[in-house]
């Protein structure tokens, strides 16, 4: 493995290093503006994306590099039946690093096994999304000043929400963390996530259905979208999609320093009227994500300021 498939592939020390680099990029962007001159990033997106793809592309441009790629499977040879392995080997001939999003879980791992350049998992089905987690960690550290001693509420689609799975894994390695898992019964956290991160490390957690009854205990509230594309049955999606909607009224019961996060895109789960609340941090996450991706690209390409 040359790239990043799972946030757990990074040690806490490596994450700290990336967070520190991102902080420095924010203050001194000029130091980083041509570090990747002559390097190419391939963005292979087999599923639609706005933020992640543009964030990777912006990150590479701000490092002085170039970008090539595609933004949907129909415009790649996957539509002709090409395997992930062959695509990875082919693109390795054109680019120095690859960011891949794919609906099949484990596809970026397969690509990283076969490619001769590092492959970054930019989201694989309902499985992992490690660079979103880097953005989340950056946001938590910047907003709360620490990554330990936090009660984190995760709300919405916890079954298919890949960002949730990666964030639980990442945060379970810090001290004095507890989780409040808020979801309908049908979208509870998968057993493998509980077994791998929560039960294994003895992390305290509760599984509840009500956001209103639990919001007052939280330091972080991580809202997620119920994802239409993960359902085989449209009726189930319709029934569950508006289970949780965060409004100013519900937020009035929360701590004054709560940090409200969302990996975006949102549909209805956070009312637009919450955006002006100083506790709303989801657009800061977007910006932080770009800086963390810059730090990650530098690390994987072995370039330093």
């Amino acid at each position: 493995m040359n790239g990043l498939n799972d946030i757990m592939d990074l040690s806490i020390g490596e994450i700290d290093e990336l967070l520190n680099t991102a902080d420095d990029i924010m203050v001194h962007p000029e130091k980083y503006a041509s570090l990747c001159k002559g390097k190419k990033l391939a963005t292979l997106f087999f599923e639609p994306s706005t933020r992640t793809r543009l964030s990777f592309e912006a990150a590479m441009y701000e490092l002085g590099g170039n970008v090539l790629g595609f933004s949907e499977a129909q415009s790649s040879s996957a539509s002709k039946g090409e395997s992930v392995s062959d695509t990875a080997k082919t693109v390795s001939c054109y680019a120095d690093i690859i960011a891949m999003r794919h609906p099949k879980e484990g596809a970026p791992k397969v690509a990283d096994m076969r490619a001769s350049v590092p492959v970054i998992n930019a989201g694989d089905g309902g499985h992992n999304h490690p660079t979103q987690t880097l953005a989340d960690l950056c946001t938590i550290r910047r907003e709360k000043g620490r990554l330990n001693g936090l009660t984190i509420g995760l709300c919405g689609d916890l079954m298919f929400g890949r960002t949730v799975h990666s964030l639980i894994g990442a945060m379970s390695r810090y001290e004095n963390i507890s989780f409040v898992l808020i979801s309908p019964d049908e979208l509870r956290i998968p057993e493998y996530v509980k077994a791998a991160y929560l039960a294994k490390s003895g992390i305290p957690y509760t599984e509840v259905r009500s956001l209103e009854d639990n919001i007052q205990n939280l330091d972080i509230l991580y809202m997620t979208r119920v994802q239409r594309e993960r359902f085989f049955n449209e009726a189930d999606y319709i029934r569950l999609k508006d289970t949780y909607i965060l409004t100013p009224e519900k937020l009035s019961k929360a701590k004054s320093d709560l940090c409200v996060m969302h990996p975006l895109p949102r549909v209805n789960e956070i009312s637009v009227s919450v955006d002006d609340d100083p506790r709303a941090c989801y657009f800061k996450q977007v910006l932080n994500g770009k800086f963390m991706r810059m730090a990650l690209i530098m690390k994987l390409l072995g370039v330093k300021a």
């Binding site: 395997s83 099949k104 484990g106 596809a107 694989d124 499985h127 493998y192 077994a195 791998a196």
Partner: peptide, 18 residues
């Protein structure tokens, strides 16, 4: 949803977790 359901000649690999 697993890549092993579609990728050709990819070995099924499982690891011991508990």
């Amino acid at each position: 949803r697993c890549i092993t359901s579609t990728e050709r000649e990819l070995r099924q690999e499982f690891r011991l977790t508990d």
